[in-house]
Simulated scan of single mutants.
Amino acid sequence: MSSGPTACRNTYLLMRHGHSEANQQGRIVSSPCRGVASFGLSDRGRKEVGETLMAWHWALPTRVVHSDFLRTTQTAQRVAKWFDVEGVVDRRLRERDFGELEGQPDARYAEAWAQDALDAEHQCQGIEAVNRVAARLLAVIRDLEQASRDECVLLVSHGDPLQILLTALEGRDLRQHRDRALMQPADVVAWPPPVRQWP
């Protein structure tokens, strides 16, 4: 399976947006037609982002790159303002397109994930294939690697895309993206992982 750069010139912080109105309603909102203009952060999500910022222990971001969905934009704007850095939209960080499951109860994510575990190329019910999600997010990092060095770039995206991206970066089978530790709303993961300091 495809994997990301083995040696990074930059440091990356991968952040999932805070709890959203779609989460609150238990609905799948993956279409840009709905997700860019609506379904932003819930009150809970705004609180989560604030708590993440107050407890920040990662490197300080030098820029923020984010999906154009409202929930990721609102998350990124809060982070960018907190650190007084530039925020830039990159549509390749968008939510995974869940096709015919759009607008359905979020319990139906399980149907997509069951198919993912069998085939990273499946497009059942018009769902965006795992390998295509991995390719577009890896392309963001590859472009940043070519354009800059020694930066700390915060990427704000969505649950499934980030799970898939991290699985790809780790060089693991993309069908196993649900097997790794799940990112919760407003979670941050550093890539490359920090070197553990032994006493």
Rank of each mutant, 00 (worst) to 15 (best):
A7P: 04
C8D: 08
N10T: 06
H17Y: 07
I28K: 07
V29F: 06
V29E: 05
V29K: 04
V29H: 05
S31T: 09
P32D: 06
G35T: 06
A37V: 14
G40K: 03
E48D: 02
T52R: 15
M54L: 13
A55F: 07
A59P: 14
H66L: 01
S67K: 02
S67E: 04
F69M: 03
L70S: 03
R71P: 08
T73Q: 14
T73I: 13
Q74S: 01
T75R: 02
T75E: 05
T75C: 04
K81M: 13
K81R: 15
W82S: 04
V85C: 12
V85K: 05
E86T: 12
G87S: 15
R91D: 04
R91W: 08
R94I: 05
R96T: 09
D97G: 10
D97N: 12
Q104C: 12
P105S: 11
Y109S: 00
A117H: 05
A117Q: 13
D119F: 08
D119T: 03
A120P: 00
E121R: 15
H122C: 09
Q123F: 08
C124P: 00
C124A: 14
Q125C: 10
G126N: 03
E128Q: 11
E128D: 04
N131E: 14
V133K: 03
A134I: 08
A135F: 13
L137G: 00
A139H: 09
L144C: 10
Q146R: 15
A147P: 07
E151K: 09
C152K: 06
V156R: 00
Q163H: 15
I164N: 06
R172F: 10
L174T: 05
R175W: 11
R180E: 00
P192K: 06
P192A: 05
P194F: 13
Q197E: 14
Q197T: 15
